[in-house]
Write a protein that binds this DNA or RNA. Structure first.
Lengths: 121, 121
DNA sequence: TCAAGTATGCACCTTTTGGTAAGTACTCGT
DNA sequence: ACGAGTACTTACCAAAAGGTGCATACTTGA
């Protein structure tokens, strides 16, 4: 009937859209490290402690297909590849900063709440 | 041995901590609607279209145990309860706004990327 | 008395997500 | 020739997340 919303109805709000891009166990961490500059695959793997090859590759692929990161293959003889943020990705990282700040400020409350949940489960 | 980080090592960065609180299929949407004011359970369920009772209750409980939302039971005869943001929760919603904005600005790119992934899968 | 509405709880099942471990194709140093 | 390092790929499995539907205890209106 009458339109209630002139935007496309795919997402409830912008946040909803954003979360489609950054959800994934390792994505925020990957973004966090890539924000420091282009990083080789192996380097990234060592930074994001605990991630498996499968997961790292998979999340990088998704981030790439979302236009957040770039993969650069130097076509060199002993295989050499690195990953970096696109300008689009960099803008996302900027938008994530307040969440970063909020998390830092309330780190203890969050950790306490997590413990509470684990204990009383 | 030598400390590399004086913060507690539970989270890699603030963002990582924050994501523990807002991850969950329906949480951002719930927060989005609660930001408009205290909302009764049934009302919320009708707002967050598609959510099941189980999920709505579950996510509300988690948000409550994280101190993000408050549950008010009016103790009235025909059962009456509502949910609202705590000040802590309100501060989280404020920190989420840039992500909201980013998502709004790039909604089309995000949707396009999602389609691309679905199609080429 | 019966259906409907309130706010939940619970059992069961499927889907999604993530982890483990192996294999590939290449090159380099010994 | 062998082991190690590069950047992945694949198959198999376990755990977590989420969905469906029924049950509860209460009340109000027909």
């Amino acid at each position: 009937m009458a339109k209630e919303n002139s935007e496309n109805p795919r997402f409830i709000c912008g946040l909803h859209a954003t979360l489609h891009v950054i959800s994934g166990k390792w994505k925020p961490l990957i973004l966090f490290f890539l924000d420091k500059g282009p990083t080789r695959y192996g380097e990234l793997k060592r930074s994001v402690r605990g991630v498996s090859d499968k997961m790292l590759i998979q999340q990088l692929k998704e981030l790439k297909s979302d236009g957040i990161v770039q993969r650069t293959d130097y076509g060199e003889i002993p295989l050499r590849v690195d990953y970096s943020l696109t300008p689009f990705g960099a803008s996302l990282v900027r938008a994530m900063e307040p969440l970063c700040g909020w998390g830092e400020e309330h780190e203890e409350d969050i950790a306490a709440a997590m413990d509470r949940r684990k204990t009383s489960r």
